[in-house]
Simulated scan of single mutants.
Amino acid sequence: MSAVVEVLQGDGPIVLGQPHGGTHVPAPIMARLNANGQGLADADWHIARLYEGLLPSTTVVRANVHRYVIDANRDPSGASLYPGKNTTTLVPLTDFDGRAIWRDGQAPSADEIAGRRAAYHAPYHAAVQAALARAKDRHGIAILFDCHSIRSTIPYLFEGVLPVFNTGTDGGRTCAQVIEAAVHGVARQSGQSHVLNGRFKGGWTTRHYGRPDTGVHAIQMEIAQRAYMHEAAPWRWDGPRAAALRPHLKTMLDTLNTLALSGALTEGKD
C-alpha cells in the first residue's frame, strides 16, 4: 500500500467518499486479529469498481486501510452513531455478526486507538475536507456522496433483508431537500427496493460534513451487496448484477452534478 488515503482529483462539485473499501491491514495488527477477524468480512467490497467512471468529473477520496484498523466513518470521539442499537465502534471489537475479531488480550488499548486515529482516521478526513473545500471554491457548492455497501442480511445489526438502495441524510439535515429528493427519486424509479433514512441514516462522515447552510451538502448511499456481488467469501464481483445497478448510480450522480452546476443551490447565498 502506497498511502493511507488515495485521492483521484476531478474538477466537478461532487466528492465521492469511500471510507470502507480498503483491505490493507499492517502486518503487526493482522497478527493480533483472530481467524475470524483475518477474514476481513466487513469491507465495502469492490466499492471503487462499482463507482469507477460513472462521472469522470468527481473527486474520489478512498481510505486504503480496512475498517478493523480504524473505522473512518465513526465519530473520532468514540460516540455511537446509533445509540441503543447494535453497531461497531471506532476500532471494532466485533464483526457485523457480533463475533470477536481480536485474539484474546490483543484488542487495542485507548492509547493505541488514539495513535491509529492520528495515523489513519485524521488523514482520510483531511483529504475529504480538502476535496470539499476545493469543490466549493470552484463551484460555490460541494456535494459529498458517501459510498457504502453491506451484506443484505445481518441480524445483529438490523431485522430482515436490507433494501438495495438505502439513502441517508440524517432525517434531511445533511443536504438540501432537492438533493435528497433527486437521489431517492432515482432509487424509487429503479425497480429495486429502497428506503430513505431507514436503518442507515448517514454515518459520521455525512453528519459531520453536511452543512447545507454553508453550501456543503452530504448524502450517504448504502447499497445491499447482493445487487452487485456475491455476499460470501471470497466476495466475488457479479458482472451482470453490477451492470444492471451502475446505470442507476450514474443517473444519481449525473442528476446531482446538473443540479449543482445549475446554480439553483447557490441562489441567495453570499
Rank of each mutant, 00 (worst) to 15 (best):
A3R: 15
E6Q: 10
Q9W: 11
G10W: 10
G12T: 00
I14D: 09
I14H: 00
I14E: 10
I14Q: 01
G17C: 14
H20Q: 12
G22C: 04
G22P: 01
T23K: 15
V25C: 09
P26Y: 11
P26F: 13
P28C: 06
P28K: 02
N34L: 10
N34C: 06
A35N: 02
A35H: 06
N36D: 12
N36Q: 11
L40E: 11
A43D: 09
I47H: 02
I47P: 08
R49A: 07
L50H: 10
L50P: 00
E52Q: 13
E52P: 11
L55G: 02
T58W: 00
T58Y: 01
N64C: 05
R67Q: 12
R67F: 03
Y68P: 10
V69D: 00
A72N: 10
S77A: 11
G78K: 01
G78Y: 01
G78P: 04
P83G: 08
K85D: 00
N86E: 02
L90H: 09
L90C: 05
R99W: 06
R99A: 07
A100E: 14
A100N: 08
I101E: 13
W102M: 09
W102C: 03
W102K: 07
D104A: 06
Q106N: 13
P108T: 06
P108S: 03
G115Y: 03
R117W: 00
A119Q: 13
H121F: 09
P123M: 06
A126Q: 11
V128G: 02
L132F: 00
A135N: 14
R138E: 14
R138F: 00
H139S: 04
G140S: 04
A142E: 09
L144S: 06
H148I: 03
S149A: 01
I150M: 05
R151W: 10
L157R: 00
V161W: 03
D170H: 12
R173Q: 11
C175W: 10
Q177Y: 15
I179A: 06
I179D: 06
E180D: 11
E180S: 15
V183Y: 09
G185E: 15
V186F: 09
V186W: 01
R188F: 02
Q192E: 15
H194W: 14
H194N: 09
V195L: 12
N197P: 10
R199I: 01
F200R: 02
F200L: 09
K201T: 05
G203P: 07
G203F: 03
T206P: 03
H208N: 08
H208Y: 15
D213L: 10
M221W: 13
I223M: 03
I223P: 05
A227P: 13
Y228W: 08
H230S: 14
E231D: 10
P234I: 12
W235Q: 03
P240D: 12
R241W: 07
R241G: 05
A242N: 13
A242I: 12
P247W: 04
P247Y: 01
K250I: 05
T251L: 05
T255G: 09
T258N: 08
G263D: 04
L265Q: 04
G268I: 10
D270Q: 14
